[in-house]
């Protein structure tokens, strides 16, 4: 995984500039100097949170990063478009560590561990986003999808419907792959 991104990163950076120009939405590469996807991941994760509704109105959301996340470096604490406070907290990649989490960002961990986490949060009103799930095996609600020039996401409709959360249908339309 890691190797793939190391190869892809510079390619995306080089190709994006002449093709799309300044008006395009760059992936945020070059800002941090290290991770070309960090900016795009932060933006995408925040947008997903913006279009997610929890059953109980919450003023404070806890954003748990489970396991080793490679592209979550630009996600700190922030305020959603609806004005909710989001606080980041790094937790262990174990189901028992997820209590109090409203959002679980699943890092680059083995698929079995990812499934363990998603199974632990199912039906509990927890938004799950998988950072590294190229074959849709994690059963997370969202899986980030890295393209050479852009970052998009895939959507697991089954996971969304079991999550107990309401995702804005407009977001469903934007998802590149729905399964």
């Amino acid at each position: 995984m890691n190797n793939i991104f190391r190869i892809l990163g510079p390619v995306a950076l080089v190709s994006s500039i002449p093709l799309l120009g300044a008006a395009d939405m760059p992936l945020g590469a070059g800002i941090s100097g290290g991770d070309p996807f960090a900016g795009a991941v932060a933006r995408t994760v925040k947008a997903i949170v913006d279009y997610t509704r929890w059953p109980q109105k919450k003023g404070l959301l806890t954003f748990c990063v489970a396991g080793d996340a490679r592209h979550a470096s630009q996600i700190g604490s922030w305020r959603t478009a609806a004005g909710q406070e989001v606080q980041r907290s790094n937790v262990a990649a174990q189901g028992s560590a997820l209590g109090g989490c409203d959002i679980v960002y699943i890092g680059s961990i083995p698929v079995a561990a990812q499934r363990h986490l998603t199974a632990a949060t199912r039906g509990k009103g927890v938004l799950t986003i998988a950072e590294a799930d190229p074959v849709n095996a994690s059963e997370a609600m969202f899986a980030l999808d890295y393209q050479p020039q852009s970052l998009s996401f895939r959507l697991n409709i089954d996971a969304v419907s079991r999550s107990g959360l309401r995702i804005d249908p407009r977001v469903l339309r934007i998802a590149k792959v729905r399964y």
């Binding site: 395009d24 939405m25 795009a40 933006r43 995408t44 947008a47 913006d50 279009y51 478009a81 852009s150 998009s152 804005d168 407009r170 977001v171 339309r173 934007i174």
Partner: peptide
């Protein structure tokens, strides 16, 4: 505006155009 608002949030050019 309603349709493309998430697409702008996600900065998805194609989705904006489609919407």
């Amino acid at each position: 505006a309603y349709t493309i608002e998430p697409a702008i949030a996600f900065q998805d050019r194609q989705a904006i155009s489609d919407g």
